[in-house]
Every structure is written in C-alpha cells, then in structure tokens.
Design a protein around this nucleic acid. Structure first.
Lengths: 215, 215
DNA sequence: TTAAAAAGTTAGATTAATCTAACAAATTTA
DNA sequence: TAAATTTGTTAGATTAATCTAACTTTTTAA
C-alpha cells in the first residue's frame, strides 16, 4: 500500500465511526482534496477490495479494508503513547509526529514499542488500541461521571490535556492504570467521593468525573 | 524536499566519500535505477543548488547540498543508536528501520533522541554524527592500534559487533565513553598494556586494538 | 588515430496523485 | 412535480519519478 492509500483508509475509518454514510464529498473534505481525486482513488481502493463502491452510492469498508485501517490506527496510537511516556514529549506535539511514524513498515519496531509500554489497551483519550491482528476489544473506556457507587474502576485515559488538569491528577498520584473506587455519588451536584489507588480519599466534581475515562 | 530527493542526496554524499568522481553511472548503481532517471534528477537537484552539474562532467555537491545530506545522516545515525540502545533492537535490524525514520520531519523528535542518548559524537562504527547544523567535527575516531604509549583516549566505537567481542568488553567494564590509557606498546606482537577507566589494568592483543575506535 | 566500447543524454511513454472545467445524477425545495 | 441546488463523474491536463529505445559524447584500445 502507498502512503496515500493508507491515509485514505484512515480517513475512511474515521468517517465510518459517525452515523452519516461515507460519501465522496465527506472524504474530500476530510482529506482537504477535490472530489474528482476522491472518485478516482475510491475506484482504485475498490479494485483492491479494501472498500465496496458503486457509482453514486454510499461507500462501505470491507473487512480487509477495516483491518488495514485498524493496523495503521494501532501504529498511530502506540506511537503517540511512546512519544509521550517514553520520550517525554507533550500531548500537543505527538500527533503530528505519530502521523508520520505510523507509516513506518516494521513489525519489530512497533512490537517493541508495544512491549516497552506494557501492551496498553487504551490510549489516553480512552480510545482502544487495536491488537496486532487489527482487532478491537469489544468495549471502550467510558467517563467516570456515568459510574456507580461501590464499584472499582481503572483509569485508562483523560479528555482534558491541559497542563492544569494533568498537574492536579499528578498531585493526587493518579496516572494511567491507577484504580478509582467510587464510594458515594452526591445527587445534588453529581460530585463523587472516591478512593484512589486504595489509599487517597478525595472528592471529584462532576466536571472532573466527565474528564476521567475508566474501564 | 521530497523523500526521493533526500535519498539522492544521501547517495551523493556517500559517493563523495570515495576518491572517484561522482558520475551518473555511479549514482544509478548506488540507487539501483537507470541512468536517464538520474540525468533528469541531477538537473532538478542542480536547479535547487544542491549540486553543481554540467552535461558530461563530474557532479559535485554544493555546501547547501552537503549540509542537507549531513542533516539526514545525523537523523539516520541518531536513530540507529536510539533503536539499539534505548529500544534494545539488534545492530543487524536497525539499519532498515532508520532508513525510514530518517525522513521524519520533526526537530523536536530528533533533538529528544539526541538528548536521551547524551548527545553522542560518534556512532558505534566510529563514524562521527553531524551536529544539528549539518557540521561534522574535524576529526574522526581512529583505531586504538595506531595509538602511542603514555596517552589517554576515549572509546567511541567498535568495529566488531559480534556477541563474543562485546561480551568481552562488558566483562572489562568497557562501554562507549570509557577511558583507555595506553601504558606500553609491545613491539613483538603489537599488543598493548592498558589502564581502563583509571582502574582495570590489562593487555589488549593487536586484533582487539584494531577493533576499538577512540579519540 | 580511428574504431569500438562505455557513459551520458534526449525523446517519449507510464504510473500515482493531484487539479480544473464541463457535464450528469440525485436530492431538495418551492 | 419541475426547477434549483448539491453531489458525483468524466475528460483531459499536470507533476514527480520512473522506464525503454535511440542517439551522442567521451574514453579506451587496437
């Protein structure tokens, strides 16, 4: 596959996540190119059985196409985590670099990254990381705000990457993988009494709970 | 610069290291492509002032072209070291991956690699690593076998990457950056009495000395 | 010193990815 | 439902990087 084809597959996969059908127009907007360019590329991708395409009809990904897209997504998400956790780069700068590294062809390289990160299942946005076969786990991380009192969860991601919020989590000793036990949920402001890592007891406002992704 | 242009510059730089003039034929062989392809590309590179080119004459790199080539070489060599020392991949497998990663566009990424490696000046083949401005140090590492008694050197690379040799160096506590003081050189077998890191005293055979690169 | 060989160039074709202009189909709306 | 709008396709051009075939220049060697 060429680099361009890989980028189309990624865009296609992203578009398939919404309810709207995948159209030539949407692909063109997603990639910032013109519609005729898309028309010719979808014919090419269809010839390679990566998508199903009929003139004037909505486009669908095939199982093969989805698998390829997820393998690229896996490389992208593992790379982002690696750049951040191993190389110490900031969240705001990792995306553009991962966008380039995701096209590197080397199983050894990405498997080693996966190992060094301890085979993570989610990226810090709470998005699941596809496995080496391009398969996704059935479940997805959800915000702590929807959780029940008396249950225990694991922090897998955050939805606010602002310095302030992350610093706040750090002072609580809360990192990816930490346990969060919900002791009580206060109805009046939807704040939560929580026990962190079985040690620290504190209160999370509803806003905070909305930004913490757990499984 | 396109990926292809970067690869031409790398090839050009490598060819410029030998005594032979740089010809269309040699470039074509180096890159495994046909001569007419090279002819058109050298016209392009000349238009960009990266090389000097006149029909039927030998090709020369300009200062600008050399600088670009060295910046790519810097990325390549830093990447190789990183893959090996930080990610634990083997010497035999790092080249192909570095060949791809050297084209990543991100100063942050490579500067961070440089930092994590402690700003290495040489790769383990004894080849100097160009600095962030595409400048090479004036000197190059040389084998210990040519060194004088009574002087102190720093280990910067090895020419034998066999497991056995490296294990031998490890048991002596010798790593990149270690100091080696030559106490005496025995004329009859050209072996050397040495003091390692100011502590361990031992004897290196001529063969060993030939495989240790120092400055 | 000229003929043969090697090296280099030109011309023209090909492929991937893009574009604009013009036309066609599908959808929305009056 | 017919006109207007939106969406999609075709046709043909462009650019980068490559090729083959044919021709030219330079070098080597008889």
């Amino acid at each position: 596959m060429t680099l361009t084809e890989e980028n189309y597959l990624k865009a296609l996969h992203r578009l398939s996540q919404s309810e709207e059908p995948i159209t030539v127009k949407r692909i063109a907007m997603q990639l910032g190119i013109k519609m005729p360019t898309v028309t010719s590329m979808v014919r090419n991708l269809a010839a390679k059985k990566l998508i199903r395409y009929e003139k004037y009809k909505a486009i669908e990904m095939t199982e093969k196409g989805r698998r390829q897209a997820l393998l690229i997504l896996r490389k992208h998400r593992l790379t982002e985590l690696f750049l951040k956790d191993v190389m110490g780069l900031g969240w705001e700068e990792v995306h553009d670099i991962a966008e380039q590294i995701e096209h590197i062809q080397s199983d050894r390289f990405f498997n080693r990254i996966d190992e060094m990160l301890g085979h993570p299942k989610f990226d810090p946005h709470g998005e699941p990381i596809p496995d080496a076969n391009g398969k996704l786990p059935f479940f997805k991380a959800f915000p702590l705000s929807g959780c029940e009192a008396g249950k225990k969860y694991k922090l897998t991601g955050v939805l606010d990457h602002d310095g302030g919020f992350l610093t706040y989590l750090n002072t609580l000793g809360l990192t990816l993988g930490s346990s969060i036990e919900v002791i009580e949920v206060h109805g009046f402001d939807r704040s939560m009494e929580v026990l962190l890592n079985g040690k620290t007891r504190t209160v999370f406002s509803f806003i905070v709970c909305q930004h913490l992704l757990v499984i």
